[in-house]
Amino acid sequence: MSIWKEYYQPRSIEEAVAVLSSSPAPSNIIAGGTDLMLDLNQGNHPPVNALIDITEIEELKTIDVVNSEIIIGACVTHNQIVKDQNVQNNADALIEACGLIGGPQVRNSATIGGNVAHALPAADGTIGLLSLNTEVEIASATGKRRIPITEFFVGPGRSILEGKAEFVTRFFVPLKKACQGSAFKRIMRAQGIALPILNNSVWIERDGDLIKEVRISIGPAGPTPFRAANTEALLRGEIFSDETIALAQQSILGEAKFRTSPRRATAEYRRQLVTELFRNTIIQAWQRTF
């Protein structure tokens, strides 16, 4: 039994929405296929009726700067991101996150849209985008809409697209302004699957010695990619200092819900790791505000 019956390569968003709406279930969007092909091959995903490959849609494959935003197409690959001058100048966290994914072969195929749409709580690109206050554009038969990335996720591997003839078309990342900086770091385990056992991204804006604004994302620290909102609130307006970081570390331990993943990491280990990881990431982000 073959893992798909029909394979469509639409050239426009409208065409894609149309086939997606008209193909009998189960039918799926495929981008780079680095996650989906594995799932299909290994039987983790049942064979599908149709795959709708959106990587031939030109407008989804570009990175542009428009007004105060970088617009990243959903089918932009991780390697494209890493090499892009605009992203390099504006979104260190995303560069660092995408640069760490897989090897070059995977980064040449895997897309940022697939990374987000797969909705894993510790996907590196996703955690990077989350701290950057990204907005997600979604296309459906009724047109396009924009939502904050925080509203995209529903549960592990589940997003608001579930069961709908919709897909992600673009990401909007605010341009970096003076006194802003971001960073991404992760910790891996030598054995077992390639996903990080813990990753963390921080975006920060400085006002003199004060933290004017900050966003912290951590994965996996809950069923969906996690924003440490309480800790962000605690830091806002504080002086950037060892004491402040220490308070933030405690706060993260209070609000992040770490779980034990068998043979990857215990919750306790993640708790031990997160404080240093966060410290290193926020310091790095802060240094980039100068």
Binding site: Q9, M37, N79, Q105, S109
Partner: peptide, 29 residues
């Protein structure tokens, strides 16, 4: 491996390295 883990199946597609074991053939059209 046929699971994107080993790189043995690497080929160059339009100038970029890709894993041929997990690339649908039709993508090479």
């Amino acid at each position: 491996c046929e699971e994107s883990e080993c790189g043995a199946c690497t080929v160059i597609m339009n100038g970029e390295s890709v894993l041929s074991c997990s690339t649908p053939a039709i993508k090479a059209n």
